[in-house]
Design a protein around this nucleic acid. Structure first.
Lengths: 213, 213, 213, 213
DNA sequence: GATGAATGAGTATTCATTCAT
DNA sequence: GATGAATGAATACTCATTCAT
């Protein structure tokens, strides 16, 4: 948890610092990230950073929480599933939102991946919080899908949460190793076509078999 | 590539060293892993490790290759798809083999994940080799499925490779966060039930729609 | 180039550090000199030295430049050759100044020797700067001597620069291996007698043969 | 002093080892030279080297002695000053021999320079032996010149020894920084022209003033 | 509230030397 | 006589963190 001094900072300074720290941690992870590089880039004194955050871990956890919130904001906060709304088109829409999120800033996704793989070294707290968020958000969707009869009850709900989480988080990897028509940048089009495939797979894969095939 | 010295080592010493190094790298990744910790645990002199490997990267790459080979060994080397054999039961069998692999040592899977996320810092070689293996193994299976008419041709094959790879690699996460009847250890039963769900999802999700629904 | 931190240091600390570093580098040269020994003797933390200098080479180059400047200060800055002043007495005076310089701290001369022999290993910069100084200072004198008709035009001017530089730089060796009336310390008297010999040799050696012998 | 085992070695092996060690020490000096690199290049076991020489210093001293002997061989052993022979033409001839020596293998000269600057670190023995040789050889010539009345008795003989030694040893530096008509290689012609200048300077500089100018 | 110099334990890597085979 | 693995102290350099100003 950052100290009060951090929130007293003028917004543009605070955001600049967050931005640079995010880049550093997303790229190198919680251990290899370098406080020295961050303050050098930010042009602030080393001591100042320790007036905002108690230590490196504190900063890391803050960035993880931030990424977590950013995720939620983009995914569900905008528009929850409406009563009576068809399920899979909604899932597709959620995923497209997620794609937008990811496209807007892949560093958030990397932070969440780091958090999930940082169970060791006293960072279990981050892992726990991120998992809780995932369970809440995707779990809520799955529960709605089950209730609406759109999902085969044979599936273990936690299994479905895991499938959706994993595929969503790792999509970046897939899109980057894919042959790009317009190399250098990951195009939004690519994301959408990949999500089409993904939603088709899920729709066929998990909806109940209506004709008793 | 380790030096000859390493292979001249008595097997028990060699395996102990590999074991400890594997633990260190799997947990902390290629950058944060500490050579000092490894030699301290192994009870060998620091200089000795450099008689076996040219540098840290050499050791990391060796462990990645080892994990890669271990994966292949468990997955397909045992029994290729027979002509005329039904596709999805075979996939299920492959996944069970993979589960066994993972159960035997989850650190192999983590090494592969690290390799896939270590494109930076001159480790692209590891990334390339691992991707090549994945493409060969899973790609081969997908191609056979397509040829046998068991997979809907609408799907992008590289998309399917990615789905299978990602889910297989990350299954450990899922199994560990799952509520355990017998806590402490991950039971083989858990793996099998999870793979049942997974194969059902895939079978329904990607096989062609035969009745033109 | 040292960092600003170094120049912010209280003068006595800065000079103590320069003094110790000068001793280490003068004695062992740029490669064999040990940063660890320097900081141990100076009683400062290892990290502190890296707040002052970016790396070993930076420190070495700084000491070379320092020695170079010190040389110039003692040799010519005090009094340039006056128009009409006889040439060889002036040379003698310059050499006596140089002797004073050398007597004040023989380590400066060693640093310059190291710089001249450190063309390899990315230290060519030092070599270049020192050579440039030498060429400027001694070269200027030679040119004046030629212009005043005090030097035989048969000689290659760069040859003369080399002779003067080499003999001046290495004089310490000669004075130390000489049988000393007052052993332990190198006496100023020794320097002066040696320079007498040297100037006599040069005067006879290089002035034009006036009677066409 | 090498152990007997070294001299029992087949000549081609012994010479190959000497050659490689010479290269290493001439380039890096007694401290920075690496035993590891030498044995690696020579393709012999590390332990073997320690069967030939007691330690690094032993090897260094051996190479210094070798260089020293090589110098003498080229300089005077071939033809001593004949009774009645004119002095300065003989000096010129000696210097040309020395130039040939230097041209044949500059590494010998570098070894002698290292020896002269390695008074510290228990290598004083090398320094002493080299100085002794120099004093004997050049000192002998100077004495002959004095006796033949070719050298002004005003000069301190040790001063003259020093001048000749220093200029001879350092000539390589001069020749390399000189603008080369045929760059890349140091031509023999350059050496000879430089020696012409040098001998002219010396002849005029140190012979007695016959007409009481 | 901001600074930035000081710290010393940490990093990967190389070294000369030994000694059992 | 030759080998080459083992050693551990040495190397230059970076780190997160503290604290007096």
């Amino acid at each position: 948890m950052p100290k009060q001094t951090f929130f007293n900072l003028p917004a543009f300074k605070r955001q600049r610092l967050v931005d640079l720290a995010l880049g550093e941690f997303a790229e190198h992870g919680p251990t290899a990230a370098s406080i020295s590089r961050i303050v050098a880039q930010a042009g602030i004194a080393k001591g100042s950073l320790y007036q905002y955050f108690t230590d490196k871990q504190d900063l890391f956890l803050y960035l993880v929480d931030l990424s977590n919130e950013e995720r939620i904001r983009f995914m569900t906060a905008l528009r929850p599933l409406q009563p009576g709304e068809p399920f899979f088109p909604y899932i597709r829409w959620v995923m497209e939102q997620s794609a937008t999120f990811r496209y807007s800033d892949p560093r958030y996704a990397r932070m969440i991946t780091w958090a999930l793989s940082s169970d060791h070294a006293g960072l279990g707290e981050a892992t726990r919080r991120v998992r809780q968020t995932i369970a809440t958000v995707w779990g809520g969707l799955i529960r709605q899908g089950l209730h609406a009869g759109e999902i085969d009850r044979e599936f273990d709900p936690t299994f479905l949460v895991w499938v959706l989480t994993t595929l969503t988080l790792d999509l970046r990897t897939y899109l980057q190793e894919r042959p790009q028509p317009d190399p250098g940048a990951v195009s939004t089009a690519n994301y959408f076509s990949a999500y089409s495939d993904l939603v088709r797979l899920l729709e066929n894969g998990i909806r109940p078999d209506r004709e008793g095939r």
